[in-house]
């Protein structure tokens, strides 16, 4: 089984604060992995390290054949293979929805306008927003903006998609529409890593759930793990929340 994302003994500190203390996990192709844990457990940091938004201090990260820990890595190649969606969507406010989605395919992959337009329409259809192609981000709701952000990353046709607490900034009513899109992607066979607080979603959709605690992988399991927590820390987390 080919491993799309592989972390081996990753250490990362910010100043004097050691955030990742020897994190290791493997994500096979086509799998959906959810990472859960308290704030400060290192889950977002681990995710950001995968796309080299943070640089690890020691250990190895291998993604789709790229050695992310290597200082000489070709970052642009990595970022065409990995797509990431952020909690605060980070859409480009001065561009319309379709311009946001078409920007990278044209600028990086050198697609023609026609090709980029096709990809754009396809991905916007996938997230249910083809009607909003000519709108500006500020005219959309939070949920719609987040779906555009997903489409924008999808347009680069990545092999792995990373989601960093993408529903945490949304009202509960808007969360559902984003989760539905993520579920569709999962059904299509996209390899995904989600850092999330949506426990019900995680246990239903994820193939693997990783519980992180104090910078370490504390417990791993499949969807049933959340009904049968083994460690005390996971029990506490599920009982008292984030």
């Amino acid at each position: 089984m080919t491993s799309m994302v592989e972390l081996k003994n990753v250490y990362k500190r910010f100043g004097s604060n050691e955030v990742l203390k020897g994190v290791s996990f493997d994500i096979p192709k086509g799998h959906v992995t959810a990472i859960i844990g308290r704030s400060g457990s290192g889950k977002s940091t681990a995710l950001r390290c995968i796309d080299r938004l943070e640089i690890i201090d020691s250990g190895e990260i291998n993604v789709c054949g790229h050695k992310v820990h290597d200082p000489d890595i070709d970052l642009r190649k990595l970022r065409t293979d990995v797509g990431i969606v952020f909690q605060s969507y980070n859409l480009f406010p001065h561009l319309t929805v379709e311009q946001n989605v078409m920007l990278a395919p044209r600028a990086v992959k050198k697609h023609s306008t026609r090709q980029a337009m096709d990809i754009c329409l396809r991905t916007l259809k996938h997230v249910g927003l083809e009607a909003k192609a000519k709108s500006y981000p500020e005219e959309l709701s939070g949920g719609q903006q987040q779906r555009v952000a997903i489409a924008r990353s999808l347009a680069m046709e990545p092999h792995v998609m990373l989601f960093d607490e993408v529903t945490s900034a949304l009202d509960p009513q808007l969360t559902g529409e984003v989760l539905r899109v993520i579920e569709t992607l999962a059904a299509d066979g996209m390899t995904m890593v989600l850092v999330t607080h949506e426990m019900e979603f995680a246990s239903r959709v994820a193939d693997t759930i990783i519980f992180m605690h104090e910078g370490r992988v504390w417990e791993t399991g499949d969807g049933t793990m959340l009904r049968n927590p083994q460690t005390q820390e996971l029990k506490d987390f599920l009982a008292f929340g984030l």
Partner: peptide, 16 residues
């Protein structure tokens, strides 16, 4: 800064 990050993660070069 998040705009820089988002653009970086779409594999755009610095000048782009």
């Amino acid at each position: 800064k998040t705009q820089w990050e988002a653009a970086e993660c779409l594999a755009l070069s610095r000048s782009q």
